[in-house]
Computed example of a mutant assay.
Amino acid sequence: MTSLSILFVCLGNICRSPLAEGILRHLTSEEGRDQEFVIDSAGTGGWHIGSPPDSRAIATAAGHGIDISQQKARKVSTADFDRFDLILALDRNNLRALKEIAPPACRARTALFSTQAFGTVEDVPDPYYGGAADFEAVYRLLYRGCALIAAVPNDGPVS
């Protein structure tokens, strides 16, 4: 079976995108479909390159049985646009940033996470300046969306 490669992107790659990566990895693994997906995350900013996810993101994921503590933040590169089938921005600002750096001809389709998952144009809120309840709310939103993405039969790249 052909794999579907997905890159989740937020601003610093320490809160939302590592959670989305961890959730989708967990869901596909639980369904025995992990071989069907290549999953990663990155940020449009490079402030946290090499750092683990925010401790609150790690704690939130761990509270749901998901370990994201070994992830390391990285910045999106132009090569990502040819490495991935689908690049999902967690908010409209990051979607704009991705479109600005995307090569003119590339393999990846770039979209807003909520558009791909729910058919809406809502941002996944950034919990960085919030507390545990904000991280939990983002986790629940990402979980619902990732469950919908994982449920789509993978017969090849998303068009």
Rank of each mutant, 00 (worst) to 15 (best):
L4A: 02
S5G: 05
F8A: 05
C10T: 08
G12Q: 09
G12D: 11
G12F: 02
C15S: 12
L19T: 06
A20Q: 04
E21C: 07
G22P: 03
T28M: 06
T28H: 01
E30L: 15
G32H: 10
G32L: 10
R33W: 08
R33V: 02
Q35S: 15
Q35G: 15
F37Y: 11
V38Y: 04
D40Q: 10
A42L: 08
G43E: 06
G45E: 13
G45V: 07
W47F: 15
W47D: 14
S51P: 05
P52C: 14
P52K: 13
R56K: 12
I58K: 01
I58S: 01
I58Y: 02
I66W: 06
I68Q: 00
Q70K: 14
K72W: 08
K72P: 05
A79W: 11
A79K: 13
D80M: 11
F81G: 04
R83K: 13
L86T: 03
L86K: 01
I87S: 00
I87P: 00
A89E: 03
L90Y: 00
D91A: 09
N94V: 13
L95E: 02
R96L: 12
E100W: 14
E100P: 00
I101H: 10
A102N: 05
A102W: 02
P104M: 14
P104F: 12
R109W: 03
T110C: 07
T110Q: 03
A111P: 02
A111W: 03
A111R: 09
L112Q: 05
F113L: 10
S114F: 01
S114M: 07
S114Q: 05
T115A: 15
Q116C: 09
A117Q: 00
G119E: 04
V124K: 03
D126M: 08
G131D: 09
D134V: 07
E136Y: 12
E136S: 10
A137C: 07
Y139M: 07
Y139N: 09
Y143R: 13
R144Q: 15
A147C: 10
L148S: 09
A150Q: 02
D155K: 04
G156I: 04
P157I: 00
S159Q: 10
S159N: 08
